[in-house]
Amino acid sequence: MTVEASTEHLSEVRDFVAEHAAAFGFNQQEVADIRLAVDEAYTNIIKHAYQNNADETVEIELGYNNTKFWVTLLDTGNTFDVTKYSKPNICQRIKEKKRGGVGVYLIRKLMDDVEYQTEDATNTIRMTKIK
């Protein structure tokens, strides 16, 4: 599916992916994990790759084989530098009254494999869950 980069579409995107994850045979908790991981990845693209420019679009692709289910999100915005990412210190962030910065950490906790790639100005995040 292709959607505008707007938080307005978050629940629609979550429901779309969750429906397919459930049909693949994941249990409730696994479906919830995938739902949240997709939310976080899509939100990061809206906020950081496209800086809330709803004229841009995000492509969402699903794939699976016998044992794995993956969700791929593609954008053409700013590239996320995964090498600069470090685990957030929530306690410290609260003291500094900072929010956010925990989405990437959550995605890694929720999914079995997360890959980032940039090619020809297209950024790809592929998140895989094993059944």
Binding site: I90, K97, K98, R99, G100, V102
Partner: peptide
């Protein structure tokens, strides 16, 4: 029914206040 990190972020931003 559901919370994402943006929701948690609100609690992070105001708890110290």
């Amino acid at each position: 029914e559901y919370i994402a990190s943006a929701g948690l972020g609100v609690f992070m931003a105001y708890i110290e206040d």
